[in-house]
Each structure stands twice: as C-alpha cells, then as structure tokens.
C-alpha cells in the first residue's frame, strides 16, 4: 500500500481490463519515474476519446463523426454487409484487406445466461438496412464460439428474404499449424467446410 494519490493511481489503473495489481503498480511507477513521459498528452487523449468518440449511426462502429469512415467511403460496396459482434472485429477484418463491403456491429452476441437477448443487440437496425433491397449478401462474422454460433443461427433464421444471400465465415485449421495438434471440433469443421481444388 502506498500513500494518497499514488495508491489512487494504482487503484484506478487496476480497474482497467487485463491490468492486475502488479501491472498497475508498474505503470504507475513508470508514469512517476520517467521524465520523458508526457502525462498531460495522455490525459488529453483520454478526455478527448470520451468526448469525441461515438458510435456510427449506420453501422455501430466507433467514429468521431455521425458516420464512420467505412460508411462514408464511396468505394465500398453497399451490396455486402459483414455482421460482427464488436467494433474490434471490424479492425480485425480490415487488417485482412479482403473485404470491400460495409459492416454492421451488433454490440455483442445472444447469451441468455448473461441476460442478453436478441432485443439487446442492433438486429432491428440491421433489418432496416436490408429493407430497400440494395444489400444482396450478408456475411455473418460472429465469433466461432457458442454464443456467436447461436447468434448466427438466429440471424440466418431471420434473414430469409428474396434476393439475399446469407453466408457464414468459414472456420477450420489455423494457417501455420500442424494438423495432428488440431482439436476434433475444429478439424470436424474444417472437413465440413472443405473446398474443391480440382474436379
């Protein structure tokens, strides 16, 4: 235990996700002991991020404006929407540079045991985006875990519309891994989702 403000700083840092008491202490002493550390800049950014950042009114991604950069970009295809659980997933998919469509952030996954039902997610907003018939494909990219699969199953039941293709991200073996170490569930999925290479 430290005195006064130092302990307060450690306690506040310790409330952040993934930061335990030891890490909080280490960060606090880094701030205290490193002269070059620009504390005021960090404080400014923290305040700014709380004031300026909001959720895109179209897709639910984080943005500083009413609509995010992806929704404003005219080069993105409006015919495809990729549905993800969190804004973090948008960044992960953008890193692949494979997807040129738009996104829709649900804000979580259906998890009855945690009290999260379909009405707690941005599903109604997704249905509104599909109403005008511009979108021809919805890619469901929820996490490949139980809640993500259940959400995908629920959405696929809901998204039965003429001229709308609903697809699910493939799951299978990680690139660079050894087949013998794959677990049976993942390997089973890889078999299910195998693709034709010839014939």
């Amino acid at each position: 235990m430290y005195e006064g403000i130092v302990q307060e700083l450690i306690d506040e840092l310790g409330r952040l996700p993934g930061i335990g008491p030891k890490s909080a202490q280490r960060i606090a002493f880094h701030i205290l002991q490193t002269e070059a550390f620009d504390v005021s800049r960090l404080a400014e950014v923290l305040v700014e991020v709380r004031e300026k950042v909001r959720f895109c009114e179209v897709c639910g991604n984080v943005t500083e404006q009413e609509r995010c950069a992806i929704c404003r970009d005219p080069r993105r295809s409006a015919a495809t929407i990729c549905v993800v659980e969190e804004a973090k997933d948008v960044a992960a998919i953008e890193r692949t540079r494979e997807f040129k469509g738009l996104y829709h952030v649900l804000g979580g996954a259906i998890s009855p045991i945690d009290g999260v039902g379909p009405e707690d997610l941005r599903i109604r907003q997704l249905m509104e985006r599909l109403a005008d018939g511009t979108v021809t494909e919805v890619i469901i990219a929820t996490d490949p875990n139980l809640e993500g699969e259940a959400t995908a199953s629920y959405l696929s039941r809901l998204l039965v519309q003429p001229n709308l293709r609903v697809t699910r991200l493939a799951s299978g073996l990680p690139v660079g891994g050894d087949l013998e170490y794959a677990d049976e569930v993942t390997l089973g999925r890889a078999f299910e989702g195998r693709r034709v290479v010839q014939g």
Partner: peptide
C-alpha cells in the same frame, strides 16, 4: 459435443 447441434436451433 452437444453445442453445435443445440445452437443450430434457437
């Protein structure tokens, strides 16, 4: 492994 079959049906 019952998860996959169960999640297929809401």
């Amino acid at each position: 492994s019952y998860g996959a079959e169960i999640t297929e049906d809401y």
